[in-house]
Nucleic acid binder design. Structure first.
Lengths: 223, 223
DNA sequence: GTCTATAAGAGGATAGAC
DNA sequence: GTCTATCCTCTTATAGAC
C-alpha cells in the first residue's frame, strides 16, 4: 500500500509541475500562443508523456483554471473565518489578492473570444463545478453588501460578479507595470480603488438607478 | 486624370472592404484566431491579391486599428465642437461610444499578450501616430477634469487613459449581453456608471490619495 | 492586380518501442 | 508511463501565369 501511495505521490508531483507550467504560460502568452511543446519542455517531460496525463490542450487549460479557482475559493473561505470583518472589505481583499496573483505573473487568463475553448470549458464538469462554487460564495457576499448598501444595489449582482472576474485579468495592471513609474503596491491600491469607487469623485452620482434587481447570482449556471 | 482618380477610388473601396473584414474578425475571433484566408474570403478576393495590398497579417491588424483610432479621434473632435459641455461629460460620451461600437461587434481588440504583434505595432509609424494623437486629446480632457475634480486627481493621468482604453474592450459587456437578461442600452448605462463611480456607493471613499501626479499623459510615447 | 497552385513550417496529436 | 519519430492539418506567405 505504501508503494501505491508513493506512486500516487510521484504522479501528483508530475502533474502539478505540468499544471504550473501551463499556469505560467497562460499568464504570460495566453492560450492561443501557448504550445504544448513549450508546456512539455517547461515541465521537463516529452510531449507524448504529457498526453498520457492530459488528453488535449483544452484539458491542460481546464486544469490550470481549476487550480486557480480552487485557490480563490480557499481565499474566500479564509476571509469567511473572520466574520467580524465587513463584507465589503472581504470583497476588496479578494480583488487585491487576484491583482497580486496577476502582478506575480501567475494569473492564467483565457481569451473570452475563443469559442472552441469556451465550449470545451462549459462541458468540463470539474471546471464548471469549481466555477459555480466560487460564484455562489462571491454571490453571497455581493448580495449582502448590496443589502447593506456598501455595494450599489442598483447593479445586477451578476454584473458585479463578472466585473470582479474581469478585473482579475485587467490589462491596466500590465500597462501600468510596464510603464515602470510606480511601485507594485501603489498600482494595486489604485486598481482596487477604481474598481469600487471608479475614476470619478462622486460628483457624478445619482445616475440611472433602476429596480433593485433581486435575482440571485446563481443565474450564472444558465450560461 | 479622371482615370487615375477612378482607379484610386476602386482601390480605396477594395481596401476598405478588406479593413472592414479584418475589423469584424478582430472583434469576434481576435487576432490569433483570425486567418488571412477568412479575411480574403470575406472581402471577396483571393489571398494572393490581398497580399498585394497588405504585406502581412500584422499590417492587416494595424490597418484596422488605425481606422478605429481615427474614428475615435473624430468622435473626440465632434465633442470638442461643443465647448460648453463639461469635460467629464465628454469623457463619459466617449466611453459610451466605445461601448456601443463593442456592442455592435465592431470593436477590434488585440491580445495584450502577443508580443510579436505588440512589437510590430510599436514599430508601425501610422498606427503609433494615431495612437499618440488620440492619447494627447484624451489626456487633455483628463487633466482638465482632474484639475476641476470631476475626475479623481489622485490617480495618475496615464492610468485613467489606460482604463478608458481597457473599458473599450471590457469582457463584462459581452458576458452581460450573452446573459440575455438586459436591454443593450441598460448594459451600457451600467458600464459607464461603474467606470466612473465604481461598484460601491461612495461609503468607501477617502482611500489612498498620494501626491497629485502632475505628469502629463504624453508619457505614453515612452512605452 | 487578380487568380490558381504550392511552398514552408508550425503545432496538435499519435504510433510503437521500451 | 516514458521516450523518439512521425502524421496530418492548418496557416502564413509566395511563385508565376494571365
Amino acid at each position: 500500500m505504501a508503494n501505491v501511495s508513493y506512486r500516487d505521490q510521484v504522479l501528483r508531483l508530475r502533474e502539478d509541475a505540468i499544471v504550473s507550467a501551463v499556469n505560467r504560460l497562460l499568464a504570460t502568452k495566453g492560450y492561443d500562443l501557448m504550445t504544448v511543446d513549450e508546456v512539455a519542455a517547461e515541465a521537463g517531460l516529452a510531449k507524448a508523456s504529457l498526453y498520457k496525463h492530459f488528453t488535449s490542450k483544452e484539458e491542460l487549460a481546464a486544469a490550470a483554471m481549476v487550480r486557480v479557482l480552487e485557490r480563490a475559493t480557499e481565499q474566500v473561505d479564509a476571509l469567511d473565518a473572520q466574520p467580524q470583518r465587513p463584507v465589503i472589505e472581504r470583497l476588496e481583499a479578494i480583488v487585491r489578492w487576484t491583482l497580486e496573483v496577476q502582478l506575480a505573473g501567475e494569473m492564467p487568463s483565457l481569451p473570452s473570444q475563443n469559442s472552441r475553448l469556451t465550449d470545451a470549458l462549459r462541458g468540463h464538469a470539474a471546471y464548471m463545478e469549481r466555477l459555480v462554487v466560487l460564484s455562489d460564495k462571491l454571490g453571497d457576499w455581493i448580495s449582502r453588501a448590496q443589502s447593506e448598501s456598501t455595494l450599489n444595489p442598483a447593479l445586477p449582482p451578476e454584473m458585479v460578479l463578472f466585473t470582479l472576474f474581469a478585473r482579475a485579468c485587467d490589462p491596466v495592471l500590465g500597462l501600468l507595470k510596464a510603464g515602470g513609474q510606480h511601485a507594485d503596491q501603489q498600482i494595486i491600491d489604485w486598481l482596487v480603488a477604481t474598481t469600487f469607487d471608479g475614476l470619478g469623485t462622486g460628483a457624478r452620482r445619482a445616475v440611472a438607478a433602476p429596480k433593485p434587481a433581486a435575482r440571485s447570482v446563481k443565474a450564472v449556471r444558465a450560461r
